[in-house]
């Protein structure tokens, strides 16, 4: 049986795939149709490895997170099998990987922007590689509904504007209370009252 290995390198990330052609679907000798194993090296972090399902879960999370990040939305994503999560962590991104084996603590990887982009590019090259004939269970990049964008992107700005407006109103209101009230009108009304009483 033909065993094929392919490697995708992007600066801090290196993904290596091992598999074989799926003869039943007519793959050529150089095409991977069945993945037997994969390893992912991210510089400064432990080596990740697993089966096709694990890679698919990782891909789902990274692709969805990157899709929302390009629209200015930093939002947490969890894979369908809930073994991989990616969430915003201050100015960075926290990748949580749960092992399918028992008594193994989840692995936490803090990625900065450049590492996230390297990983995204690595997985992009894999999913668009024509030498890998695998149908990935991943959402295609599609536009978000307008309401979703308004809700997620402008929420912070709106909150800031509201607080800013409220503070300015309070300050101006307080300052206005210190302005002395003109006595001219009071005197005039006194005069009117006195003349009316004389009559």
């Amino acid at each position: 049986m033909l065993n094929i290995s392919r490697r995708y390198d992007q600066n801090s990330s290196s993904l290596e795939l091992e598999g074989m052609p799926d003869v039943s679907s007519g793959d050529s000798n150089e095409t991977i149709g069945i993945i037997s194993s994969w390893t992912l090296k991210i510089i400064g972090f432990p080596l990740l490895e697993g089966k096709k399902e694990h890679l698919e879960n990782l891909m789902q999370v990274i692709v969805n997170y990157s899709r929302s990040y390009i629209s200015g939305i930093k939002k947490s994503y969890t894979s369908t099998e809930k073994i991989v999560s990616l969430l915003p962590f201050e100015s960075k991104h926290k990748l949580l990987l749960k092992s399918t084996q028992k008594n193994v603590k989840p692995l936490e990887i803090i990625l900065d922007d450049s590492e996230l982009f390297d990983l995204t590019r690595c997985l992009d090259i894999l999913r668009y590689d024509q030498q890998v004939n695998i149908k990935w269970n991943i959402d295609i990049d599609k536009p978000y509904p307008k309401r979703y964008i308004t809700k997620n992107v402008y929420r912070q700005n709106n909150l800031f504007s509201f607080i800013y407006a409220l503070t300015s109103f309070a300050i101006v209101g307080t300052l206005l209370t210190f302005i002395p009230i003109s006595n001219v009108e009071l005197l005039n009304t006194d005069k009117i009252e006195s003349t009316s009483s004389e009559n």
């Binding site: 033909l2 065993n3 290995s5 090259i125 030498q131």
Partner: peptide
Amino acid sequence: ISTNLVSSI
């Protein structure tokens, strides 16, 4: 049989 194809994109 094992072949190693390193994709250099």
